[in-house]
Write a protein that binds this DNA or RNA. Structure first.
Lengths: 203, 203
DNA sequence: AAATCATTTAACCATTTAGTTAATTTCAAA
DNA sequence: TTTGAAATTAACTAAATGGTTAAATGATTT
């Protein structure tokens, strides 16, 4: 595939994205990115100085539009139950659209935790404190069971993210095809809000 | 550090385990394993023919006592609610004891899914079919809400495993120290069975 | 059209890495 | 104490890989 005229930089990013995703940082070869982009390998170094720089560029752009969307949902002014619905619906849609992001993050966690920490502090200082406070309010109002709000938040993240991070294993263990997995996730959009709310709701 | 006399094989496995865990398959260098074990690199090839064989040996031994313990719980004859309790209690204890295993697997999932897939297919064919059937029985008996059993199983795995896989990020986002995280997990042993059962139980 | 600038390439280079080899050491059995 | 096999090592190879360079190509301006 020849590169689109004068679009090399973008072509490279797209190709690198694809290769890094499927091979991981160490498994990725500059030559493979070049081949995927249909350009000469030296051009990668012309636009981005090094393998590291390319990876960083991809990671940053992926993350910069991903995390804020989640925090926005959690810190919105929606009423609690509605928010739980919105959270899973939008979060799963995001993950369907960018199923690689959990893996990306895992890589940075394993490979560069201190970098990730400063990255977080630099780009996203806001924490889901509003949501945690909202959970407490619901408890105080007697609408949901008294629990540690952190346990609830972590559980919600786990329920949404885990299937994507563990997809290949789940497919084996549960004998799911690609289509099976897709409908599994679609079904999960309905399943999760009910699952969580049934558990939280005071009876 | 010199190798204990004639213990090289075990020394190598221990060293390789440590290095593969922190670096992942592609990130691991045979030289680093040799250094970690305090032996010559050629000895790695003397005991194990290749990098692949070493990885296989480690992954296998890690898993051979890990996965069966989980499957045993899931396929035991305990009544349903008791089993949910046992599952989380024992699984979290296992993860506390081997907190690296989720990262190990996630790393390989992210960087080498096809390698992992063939590995699983080769070594573990048993599936938690008995547990899935048991869930169905509970539904038919009207004791729990009708749901897709797979959604429930995946949710249980997610709730247990995710905090370990995502530990560094959770610590940043939720501002938890090492001790905070430990007590968070301890608390989770009580939290999870209640969380799941409240959700499943028919009212 | 000549000059200038950015873009792209083929051919290299230096380093790293998994794996090999041939020689040496260790150690137990004869 | 000799011998022979197993264990261990230093030195090596071949291939792969990230990165460089200098020349070629293309586009834009003067």
């Amino acid at each position: 595939m020849a590169p689109a005229e004068h679009q090399s930089e973008d072509t490279i990013l797209k190709a690198a994205h694809k290769v890094f995703l499927s091979r991981g940082y160490h498994g990725t070869r500059m030559q493979e990115i070049a081949d995927e982009a249909g350009i000469n390998k030296a051009l990668l170094h012309y636009y981005f100085r090094s393998k590291d720089k390319i990876f960083e560029a991809i990671f940053l752009s992926s993350f910069k539009n991903f995390l804020p969307q989640i925090l926005e949902i959690l810190d919105s002014d929606e009423p609690f139950e509605k928010k739980i619905n919105t959270f899973f619906s939008k979060y799963l849609d995001l993950l369907i659209k960018h199923p690689h992001i959990p893996n990306f993050i895992m890589h940075e966690v394993a490979h560069n935790p201190e970098h990730l920490q400063s990255f977080f502090k630099k780009h996203f200082e806001s924490k889901p404190s509003k949501f945690l406070r909202q959970i407490k309010e619901e408890m105080d109002a007697g609408r949901i069971e008294k629990q540690d709000p952190k346990q609830i938040l972590v559980s919600m993240l786990a329920l949404a993210i885990f299937p994507f991070a563990a997809k290949p294993i789940l497919q084996i263990v549960l004998e799911m095809s690609e289509d099976d997995f897709k409908s599994f996730i679609q079904e999960r959009k309905k399943f999760l809000p009910e699952f969580v709310m049934r558990s939280l709701r005071k009876i």
